[in-house]
Design a protein around this nucleic acid. Structure first.
Lengths: 214, 214
DNA sequence: CTTATATAACTGACTAGTCAGTTAGTTGCA
DNA sequence: TGCAACTAACTGACTAGTCAGTTATATAAG
């Protein structure tokens, strides 16, 4: 065993990088929160992952809770807005847009890093109801609203028969959500590695129904 | 303000009730875990809720984690077994049995106390993967298996057309699960206070499909 | 029906350890 | 030189789990 050679013998011990820090801290926080949960994650570990000292975090975020809030805002806001505008643009062909949205959603939910945030929200919802509400209003309600508008457009066009819009939205989101929980939370064998196929069978059922009409 | 009168001036300071304690402790633990989350729940508070001292908990359960495990076993095991036997008994009329099971499930999931355990499991799944696995194997896999057997029976009888069984199971469970999360985790307006109606619209969609065939 | 004895059930006070947040001082850079 | 960015070391508060001692109750003996 030779003594460990210093990898960077020259250069400063640290650099002033005030611009880049916040985002790096958020990345590190997401990683720690995701693997250990919010409560068990240690600020010291987040700092280490971000490559700074614990005290430096407090130069950018006033508290651990603030870190969580900022994280959710940064990671989730854009996503919902994207869904919303996509749905709005696709009103002319609602069924195809629905299929596209569902496939995209299944694809993203298959990624553990993406599913980490909703999972985190579920975990802390008891202690931080205001975060749960933020998530509901700014993410789920937005996406759900967009979906319902699309379904209503389909009904108006006559390609979807007259059924309860909210129930249809549930029938689209629910199965994908279930597979996400099954995969990432319960560690079961996943069908999410082939999102295309998943959505295809889902649409087969939803569009044509289960009853035998041969 | 009169000085508070002692409610029970006579009688012992505590009673020996070894038979009743474990269940009371589990009840208290469920309440605390549910409102504060597993990590933030304090053993002292659980003890207070159960009406005993903190040390007394350790006469019955070796650790906080053991408390959580016992809780899940006690609250959930019976439920899954019940689903399983109901499904087995209803093979002769699969569609009616499915409808019955779905209604019962929606009814139960509407109860915040029942939904508390799965919610807890989701929250701690990162830190206690073995608990998540226990839950998957002993609850979800069991119920899902029973459901799939029922669907296969329907296909064999010809009342359900030839579609992917797993996808159908997802299509049954997913929407109910979604509504549970929406209601109890995100605090949204719920459709679960009328489980009958919820399931009716769900079955309308699932059986007949969305396409307009007028 | 007492009263003595044994022990299971329970408590209060403590320990050892953890961790969010603070402070006093150091370093990089303009 | 001046000051913003950063760190090491510290503190205060909190809590899972322990333990020595106390109390309730079952049972046996008088």
């Amino acid at each position: 065993m030779s003594p460990p050679t210093v990898p960077e013998p020259t250069g400063p011990r640290w650099r002033r990088r005030a611009e880049a820090r916040p985002e790096e801290i958020l990345e590190a926080a997401l990683a720690e929160f995701t693997t250990r949960g919010f409560e068990a994650a240690r600020m010291e570990d987040i700092a280490k992952t971000a490559g700074i000292s614990k005290a430096a975090i407090y130069l950018y975020f006033p508290s651990k809770t603030a870190l969580l809030e900022a994280l959710i805002e940064a990671k989730i806001g854009p996503l919902a807005n994207q869904v919303q505008s996509l749905a709005l643009a696709g009103q002319t062909d609602p069924l195809m847009t629905l299929r596209m949205l569902a496939t995209a959603a299944a694809h993203r939910i298959g990624d553990a890093r993406v599913f980490a945030v909703p999972r985190l929200v579920i975990g802390i919802s008891g202690r931080f109801p205001e975060i749960a509400e933020y998530y509901r209003v700014n993410v789920v309600e937005k996406a759900r609203g967009a979906l319902e508008a699309l379904i209503d457009a389909g009904k108006a066009k006559g390609v979807i028969r007259n059924v309860d819009t909210k129930a249809v939205a549930r029938a689209f989101i629910g199965p994908i959500l279930f597979e996400g929980l099954w995969t990432h939370v319960l560690g079961g064998e996943t069908a999410l590695n082939d999102p295309q196929k998943l959505i295809e069978s889902q649409f087969d059922i939803l569009l044509s129904g289960l009853e035998n009409r041969a």
